[in-house]
Structure formats: structure tokens, C-alpha cells
Design a protein around this nucleic acid. Structure first.
Lengths: 169, 169, 169, 169
DNA sequence: ACGTACGGGACCTCCCGTTGGT
DNA sequence: ACCAACGGGAGGTCCCGTACGT
């Protein structure tokens, strides 16, 4: 907290006037970050009619997400490793996980409806997408250099979508 | 550390007699865990001729891996969050990543050779596999209940392999 | 201080506009409280001719004093504990003690004069009265429920006055 | 806590190795203090056959109690003014109050049995005794100089016992 | 090999009082 | 008269690792 306040050029008193706790700040930052991601995803979704194409575009356009993750994920990892014991904070921290799972499940169902995807299990596919995204984000944070992560994400999702189109159960 | 020692029924003195530090213990645990995984992967690989099938079997047989991962989340989080400060931890964190990436890249190349997979980019596919595995593991430890993770992993990998077979670039 | 202000529905700015400090408020409250007590004691005293009866009536009529004391415990504790560090607080804490001691000493002397009390040491008796009053007040705020404190105070003082009448040194 | 540790010549680490919290230390000290008082009271009680005399002796022999109070009560007052919000600590802090009330109530009942006291309400009389003791202790702490508190306590209790013997309800 | 007591220091949180503005 | 934002610093707690004994 001292470090944060010094970076921001304010005092600890000011910090605790604006945030109920250190975790309160992190939850705010998390929320703001995810909101930005949501907006970008929604924007991409609205420009595409076929869901299969929308998913691929989302991955390919994930440049800003990877760029931001480099600065934020480490912070959140540290936060989570501390907040791990407090149920309330913990619940708020993993809620986004579930949200994205539902979000992508719905996208996939729409993709099945519009015919751009095979009739696969949307829940499984959504977990796959989320796991892939999280896994790639983690890798990118651990090895930020020497790899074009957005491009890799695009290719990977293209491959997965390819499977979603080909799969016959 | 105290918590760990109490769980084990020993004292801190005994702990520091066997391990150089807390991170030292975690490194040991990680190493032992990965070694076990390696052996199981190798065993599965040796029973299958077609690589595509081997990958699916690996995922489907991941029950013990998921079981062991449960409760290890704090360790992972601590590792990841410290990887940015301590080079030793960073090295230990990414080494397994690299190893599995190369391992799966080779598997995929063999799969392409034996015709069970399309001629895709093995590096990209390997990263996809690793990211998917890590992402699913993370999901499983975040929500350990109410889900058959090994089965889900099997389905997910089947979907991905399906894509690896269908993909034409 | 924040708590006080929130209870009052004002802000800290308003508080420090009206009071020099937290202790300043407490001094005001103490003063106002004691003033009210003084008036009530004087009123009772004026209705009684025999001092022994006056004392018993004062105790029996202490209902409002006990009622007001309820919830003031934090204030008393803060006062007492700070009296050792800050001379100003110390002075404000013991002044009422001294005043009441002298007040009751005079009452007792008058009681001896009018024959309603034995010729006891008025200083000692006054300290006894004050100590008893403070002790009962403290008990009442520690255990506000399940006890009729004014009645108990009346009985206790009757007992003490009984001793003051019987005592032969 | 820093202050305490510096006085004791140990480190904070050592402190929290021996006590669960600062309040834990205070509760230990309180317990030790009260235990000493209990022993002295029991010793006096055992040397006297008539309870009325025992009470007077207890008060007259309270020199060590007053002497110790000067050093400890301020500490406990400060402690209580902080622990005021925590129910568990608070309960442990006021329990002695109740214990002494019961203790003296029993003493008084024995005094009534042995004929050295009139048949008064033992509960009321016990509260009176405790209130008197606490009130005198508080006064002695606030004004440690210029007064022979043990002697005053002896005289006061003699007066009260006098009332307990004379009282006819 | 193992245990107890301890050192040292970081960390979050709290809270009184001030300040500039309205 | 009143308020939000803030400064400054004390304070309790936690926890990794060490020292010394057995």
C-alpha cells in the first residue's frame, strides 16, 4: 500500500479515504479491466454475423488484452494469492470466470443456431474457450518476450473453431 | 510455513532442516508432481500408435492429475506471483512450460507423420494444448465441485484434435 | 470521531468547527452532565430538612443519573486512561471528584449538626459516598440490564447512612 | 506493544510467540493480579471467625492492593477502553466484577449466619462492597498522593459494616 | 533429526486533526 | 457553517528464517 501511494503521489490517509481496503482497490481495478474487455468483445461481436467468425476475430483482436495483462495479471495474481482465504473477496475474484463461461456458452449456442458451428455441447466448448484464454494469458505473462501472443491466440482459436465446425460428437 | 508444519505434525525446525526455504519445498513438490505426470504421459503414449488417439487418451486419463491439483492452487498462485521478482522462481516456473511445449510439439509432429493429424503448425498446436491443460487445471481447482473434470478435459481435447484433423490452414 | 459525527448526521468538518478536539467534546459533555446532577441534588436537598433523609432521597432519585450514564462508559474509560498522560484531562477528571467530596462533606457536617447523623469524620464519609456513587455508576454501565439501579443505590445508601447513624468511632 | 517489548528487552517476534495478542497479555496480567488478591483475601478470611471483622480486616489490609493498583489500573483502563468493542475480551474483562460480587455475597451470608451481621440483602450489600472498593481504587489511582487510602478504606468499610450490623431493613 | 524461542521487519489499517473550497 | 479530501504517523499482527539446545 505504501508503494501504491507513493507511486500515485498521495498519502495512505487519502488511499483509505477512497477505498475501504487494499482489496477494495483491487476489486475496482479488476472490474474496470474486465469492463473494458467486455466492451471490446461486444464491439467485435456486433460487427460479425457468423459466430464462428466472431470468435476468431475476438482472439485475433486480443492484442490490447495481452498488452494489458502483462501489467495487470501479475498484480492480480499477487492479490489472489493473498485474498485466497477471505471468502467474500475470493468469491468476487472468481465470479468473472463464471461470467465468461456463460458468455461464451451463449455465443456458441448462437453459433450453432446460425449454422456456423456444429451442434456441440456449448458448456464444454465454453470451458474450453475460457481455459484456452486463461492459459494463453498466463503463458504470455510468464514469457512476455519472443512471441506474438495475439497472433498465436488467433491461430489457436481458429484451430479450435475448426474443431467445433468439424466435430460430430 | 507454520501451517504446513502443523499439518505435517512437525515443527519449523524440522522443516528448515529438510528444505532450504519455503520456495524450496514448493519447487520439490512441483518437481515431484511433474515427474509423476511425465511418467503417466509416457505410459499412455506407449500404448497408442496413432498420436491423435494418444492425445485424447492423455486427457481422458487425467483423473489423477486433476485430483492432485486440487488444493495446490495456493502454491501455484504463490509461484506465479513471485516469478516476477525472483529469477530462480521464474526459471522454475517456465521450465515445465517449455518442456511440455516441446514434448507436445514432438507428439504432434509424429501425429502429422503418422497421418492422424493434418499438417498444422506443431508449435502453435503445442502451445494450444499446454494452455488448454493449464486453463482447465486452473478451472478445476477454482471450482473443484460439481464437474467431472477429467471427462471434460477428454471432450475438450477431442474437440481440439478434431480441429487439428480438419484444419487446412 | 467519525462515528460520533455519523451518529449526529454531520461531517468531521462541522465537528471541528464546534469543538477544539475530541477531548474538548468530552469535557463539554462531562460538564453538562455534572451540571444537571448538581441541579437535581440541590433540588432534593432543599426539600429535606434532615440530612440523613436527604442523602437517601438523593440516591433513590438517581434514576435519571443512571439513565444518562448508560452508554457513557467509553467516555469515562477514555478519560480515566488519558488522565495519566495529559494534565488537562487529569485536572478535569479530578475536579468533579473534589467538588463532590466537599459537597458531601458539608452535607454530612450539616447532618451531624442537625442530629440526624453520628459525629463521624465527614471527610472519610464523603469519600465513601463518592466512591460508592462512582462504583455503582460503573456497575450500572457495565451491566445495564436486569437490575433496578436507582433502587439498589437507594438501599445501599440507606445502609451506609444507617452506619453513619450507628457508628461510634 | 513495541514499548512493552522494549521495556522487557525482547523483540515483537518473541512477544507474539508467547502471547496470542496484546489483549492476551493483558488478560494474563489481570488474571495474575486478581489471583494474588484472591489469595490475600482468603488468608485474611481464614484468620477471622466473625465475618464482620473479616471484612474490616480485608479493607484495612488492602495496602498492597492499592499500591499495585497505582501501577496496574491505569494499564487496564487503557486496555479496556480499547477492548471495549470486542465482546469476547470484554466479557473476560468484566467477569471478575461478577465473581467478586458473588464472593462477597457469600461472605455476607456467612456473616449473617454467624450473627455478626444483621439479616440484610446479601446481593445488595455485596454490590455495595464491590462498588465501594472499585470507587476507592479509582479515586486512589487518580489522586495517588496526599491520602492514606488503605486506612481510608478500612474506616469506610468499618462504617459500612456498622450499618450492616445496625440495619433493620 | 528435531524442537523452542526468538529476531527483524514488512504490512495493512486506523484515526485524529487540517486544509481549501463552497 | 459546513464539507470532502487529505496528511501523517502510530499501532497491532503476521511470518520467514535463524540460533541454540538436546
Amino acid at each position: 500500500v505504501i508503494e501504491i501511494c507513493e507511486s500515485a503521489g498521495v498519502s495512505k490517509g487519502a488511499f483509505y479515504h477512497h477505498f475501504p481496503s487494499k482489496q477494495g482497490l483491487f476489486l475496482c481495478l479488476l472490474e474496470a479491466w474486465l469492463e473494458g474487455i467486455d466492451q471490446r468483445l461486444a464491439a467485435i461481436r456486433s460487427t460479425q454475423t457468423a459466430m464462428a467468425q466472431a470468435l476468431v476475430h475476438m482472439a485475433a483482436a486480443s492484442g490490447s488484452i495481452f498488452a494489458e495483462a502483462g501489467g495487470r495479471l501479475p498484480m492480480f495474481l499477487e492479490f489472489w494469492s493473498q485474498a485466497h482465504r477471505e471468502p467474500a473477496v475470493w468469491a468476487a475474484s472468481i465470479a468473472p470466470y463464471r461470467r465468461y463461461r456463460m458468455y461464451f456458452a451463449r455465443l456458441i449456442e448462437e453459433g450453432i443456431s446460425d449454422g456456423s458451428l456444429s451442434p456441440i455441447d456449448s458448456q464444454i466448448a465454453a470451458r474450453l474457450i475460457v481455459a484456452l484464454a486463461v492459459g494463453l494469458l498466463l503463458q504470455s505473462v510468464l514469457e512476455p518476450e519472443g512471441e506474438d501472443w495475439p497472433k498465436l491466440a488467433g491461430e489457436a482459436v481458429r484451430l479450435v473453431v475448426s474443431g467445433m465446425q468439424a466435430d460430430r460428437g
